[in-house]
């Protein structure tokens, strides 16, 4: 599968989706003007990926800030990854938050209550 490598901007995150090298990461800020335009290609890529995922997928979320419109595409990404896990693949989420930014940590915890995926938390 062709990798996705997007460089972050002030309001969109850096995105790496690279199965060959085992790198899956979203980092930076996410409050695009048009959330659909930004996330639809990423969600489509993930839908294809979970058809034949790697044996192990560790997906890193390392965000400074994300707005309310980014919650739903994130949830959709987790639901797709949970589908792969349900089929027996090893999938986990590494959720980073800036030291002291308890709101971002709490957001991760709340996602983990909705989806059947293991979340690990680390500060940076």
């Amino acid at each position: 599968m062709e990798a996705i490598n997007l460089k972050g901007t002030y309001d969109t995150p850096s995105v790496t989706l690279d199965p060959e090298n085992g790198n899956f990461e979203i980092s930076g800020r996410s409050y695009p003007e048009d959330t659909a335009e930004f996330y639809i290609p990423i969600l489509e890529w993930l839908s294809n990926y979970i058809q034949h995922p790697n044996e192990h997928t560790k997906f890193v979320f390392k965000l400074d800030y994300f707005n309310s419109s980014s919650y739903k595409p994130f949830l959709d990404m987790f639901l797709k990854l949970a589908e792969a896990k349900e089929k027996g693949h090893d999938v986990s989420i590494e959720w980073f938050f800036k030291e002291g930014d308890w709101d971002i940590k709490e957001a991760g915890e709340e996602f983990s209550e909705i989806v059947e995926l293991p979340f690990e938390y680390s500060s940076f």
Partner: peptide
């Protein structure tokens, strides 16, 4: 309520202001 709105609104629908 946040969880409920998040789960039950459609992707890229007009949920932004609600969650906001």
């Amino acid at each position: 309520f946040h969880k409920d709105v998040l789960i039950n609104t459609e992707l890229f629908g007009k949920y932004g202001a609600d969650l906001g």
